[in-house]
């Protein structure tokens, strides 16, 4: 049980595909606890993925229940092993920041409703969760870390769209 330092880009692990986990054992449970501790220690943090603390494994934790954006619509603490998004719909833009990319934020478009399937740490069963709103955004952001994708890879610019037309002369 320990708060781990958050790796920052350009650490190579943040751009690597993480490996699937074979099953829940003591080591994986300890890693999950580290992820929870690290998330709770980060000011305003609502999720941490294993690659962010140096483990190239498909594990992440999300908890938006204490955030003002997600306090009314959430599933509490989600400890997700081998998560995958099996359904997604809708789209919305939110300005995201990431502990692994400090001092920069960017507008990212994500699905507003998702269904995520994962091996649940508590029940040791495969569980499906239908998330929406901020919780869905947080899950998509953390799952991206398992594929070596940072929010910088998804940044969209609203102004480009609005001000593209040019015909002055």
């Amino acid at each position: 049980m320990a708060v781990q330092p958050i790796l920052r880009y350009p650490h190579p692990l943040l751009k690597k595909l993480a490996h699937p986990v074979a099953g829940l054992d003591a080591e994986i449970r300890a890693l999950l606890q580290d992820l929870i501790d690290t998330m709770r220690a980060g000011p305003g943090s609502v999720g941490v993925a294993a690659p962010q603390i140096g483990a190239a494994l498909r594990i992440c934790v999300v908890d938006v229940s204490k955030s003002r954006h997600g306090s009314e619509n959430n599933h509490g603490l989600l400890c997700m092993v081998n998560p995958e998004i099996v359904a997604r719909s809708g789209s919305a833009v939110m300005r995201e920041g990431c502990m692994s990319v400090p001092d920069y934020t960017g507008d990212v478009e994500r699905a507003t409703e998702i269904t995520v399937r994962f091996l649940d740490e508590q029940s040791d069963q495969v569980r499906e969760v239908a998330a929406s709103g901020f919780e869905a955004v947080a899950i998509q952001h953390e799952l991206d870390h398992l594929d070596g994708i940072l929010f910088l890879d998804r940044v969209v610019s609203i102004t480009t769209g609005l001000f593209r037309r040019k015909s002055y002369r």
């Binding site: 943090s45 609502v46 955004v137 929010f151």
Partner: peptide, 16 residues
């Protein structure tokens, strides 16, 4: 007064 449309959207970044 100005007869313009004014829209406000909160874009405070979320820390993920």
């Amino acid at each position: 007064e100005l007869k313009v449309e004014i829209g406000i959207r909160v874009v405070t970044p979320v820390e993920l």
